[in-house]
């Protein structure tokens, strides 16, 4: 059974340091060629504080916890059967190496389709930087496949 009472529940803030080394590693993993994503001087020349985190990096910051599936488990999803079905971002201020980002996740929906064969959870995360600026708000939908 899914626990719909968790809809609207926000979880304790997660404080994450944006590591320059990891940004470089991410750039390598995705074969990034634009140096603003791995070379601090190139990023500074483009007006950023440091190496720029790419558009999808908020999710990586959100996974910087011992168990990224803890919320999915809390609503009753089987973490071994979870697939990511949708992801979206709204952007405000850039995230850069050396930033300290506070992430607050809220479960925004929990529902079933096809008589319970597919169980979904939607969560929204707000990411604020060390200056108190909203950087990005992102929404993630996961499904437990039957």
């Amino acid at each position: 059974m899914l626990d719909k009472t968790l809809i609207g529940k926000s979880f304790p803030p997660l404080l994450v340091d944006v590591d320059k080394w990891q940004l470089k590693f991410f750039a390598k993993a995705v074969s990034e060629e634009n140096p603003i994503y791995f070379d601090e001087q190139a990023a500074i020349a483009e007006g950023y504080r440091s190496i720029l985190a790419p558009p999808t990096y908020g999710v990586t910051l959100g996974c910087a916890v011992p168990d990224p599936f803890s919320r999915a488990k809390a609503v009753g999803l089987d973490a071994t059967k979870i697939l990511h079905t949708a992801q979206s971002f709204e952007y405000f201020e850039p995230i850069c190496g050396g930033d300290q980002i506070t992430l607050v996740a809220t479960i925004t929906d929990v529902f079933e389709k096809r008589g319970g064969a597919f169980k979904f959870m939607v969560e929204e995360t707000v990411a604020t930087n060390q200056l108190g600026q909203l950087t990005t708000r992102f929404r993630q939908t996961v499904v437990e496949r039957a």
């Binding site: 634009n34 483009e46 720029l52 790419p54 558009p55 999808t56 992801q87 952007y91």
Partner: peptide, 27 residues
């Protein structure tokens, strides 16, 4: 998220990342 990162590179190859207002995908 690797596929989405590639799609992000399509966007940042066309505009500066500062100009991306929103970006969403379905897998």
């Amino acid at each position: 998220m690797l596929d989405m990162a590639y799609m992000g590179q399509l966007l940042t190859g066309w505009v500066s990342q500062r100009d991306i207002l929103s970006f969403g995908v379905k897998f």
